[in-house]
């Protein structure tokens, strides 16, 4: 039997629309659920006080420090590496076997699950290099983890710079590096910043790779060789060990707000970038 195309059209659109709405509802639900339960706990004292009894009472101040330090440390390492990789790929070579290998490596690295990064960071940085559970180990592990994101977004941003700018620059006697420095990178900057923001967002929320490399000390670190605990790890421990669901919600809310803030900032930068382009 042949169904009238009009009905299949109607049916299909209905199903597609409801699937989309359902998807969005899930997202909205997750965010609102956490915020509703967590915001009452969240306050200035929650953010600025030290935890007591392993987090059962008190605030989350040390984890706030850890959550800032680790991503910053990771990005300090990954950003220069990532940008120069993307400059090399986009400006200095044609498609060769080397660029194919680099690109394949980047893609593979992007697909590796965080638990593998955790295992690697543990055996390489913590044990083999003897850095112990520390900001150093955790930061380096996160740096390796976000490297592909930075490479990809930077390369895309660099390729989006109009070729005519490069031509003009060369025609005025600029060398390749001068062209990159003066014309390409300034114009690709917003796109690059977007990639950095997304990487910060991912680092903030990361747990598996961090817990085995940076440890989970609740003390405020005094050097890069000290262990630290991020909000995500703290939240995981609170929730998993059933220490305090109230403080878990509070930590989760802080975490979500931080991650959403960083991501919205990234979208905003990208949006302005695109708006400026057209």
């Amino acid at each position: 039997m042949r169904i009238n195309p009009k009905y299949t059209q109607w049916g299909a659109v209905t199903i597609l629309t409801s699937a989309t709405i359902f998807t969005i509802l899930i997202l909205v639900f997750i965010i609102f659920f956490i915020l509703e339960k967590g915001l009452p706990v969240l306050g200035l004292s929650f953010l600025t006080e030290n935890p007591q009894e392993m987090g059962k009472a008190g605030g989350i101040f040390p984890t706030l420090i850890g959550t800032i330090i680790l991503p910053v440390f990771a990005l300090l390492i990954a950003t220069p590496l990532g940008i120069s990789t993307s400059v090399y790929l986009a400006e200095y070579t044609k498609e060769t076997r080397i660029t194919k290998v680099i690109r394949f490596g980047t893609d593979c690295l992007a697909g590796i699950p965080s638990i593998i990064f955790g295992l690697f960071g543990y055996i390489f940085f913590v044990i083999t290099l003897g850095f112990g559970w520390s900001i150093l180990s955790g930061g380096l592990t996160l740096a390796v983890m976000v490297l592909p994101t930075i490479i990809r977004t930077s390369e895309e941003a660099i390729r989006a710079v109009p070729n005519s700018y490069r031509k003009v620059s060369f025609s005025l006697g600029a060398s390749r590096w001068q062209t990159v420095k003066k014309v390409v990178l300034p114009n690709a900057l917003p796109g690059i910043v977007t990639g950095i923001m997304l990487s910060i967002g991912r680092s903030i929320g990361e747990t598996a790779a961090v817990i085995f490399t940076a440890g989970s000390s609740l003390r405020i670190p005094s050097s890069v060789f000290d262990s630290t605990r991020t909000m995500a790890v703290h939240f995981y421990i609170l929730a998993r060990e059933g220490i305090s669901s109230e403080n878990a919600y509070g930590t989760a809310a802080t975490l979500i707000i931080a991650v959403l803030f960083v991501n919205l900032l990234a979208y905003y930068t990208m949006h302005r970038f695109i708006a400026k382009r057209s």
Binding site: S164, V168, S169, L172, A174
Partner: peptide, 27 residues
């Protein structure tokens, strides 16, 4: 630097008029 070129479509670099003019000289 000795043989300059003006292309068919005007392509100012995305910087000020002043910086456009001195771009090559600064290099």
């Amino acid at each position: 630097k000795k043989v300059g070129i003006v292309f068919a479509m005007p392509v100012p670099l995305p910087m000020s008029i002043y910086e456009n003019v001195v771009y090559g000289v600064r290099l």
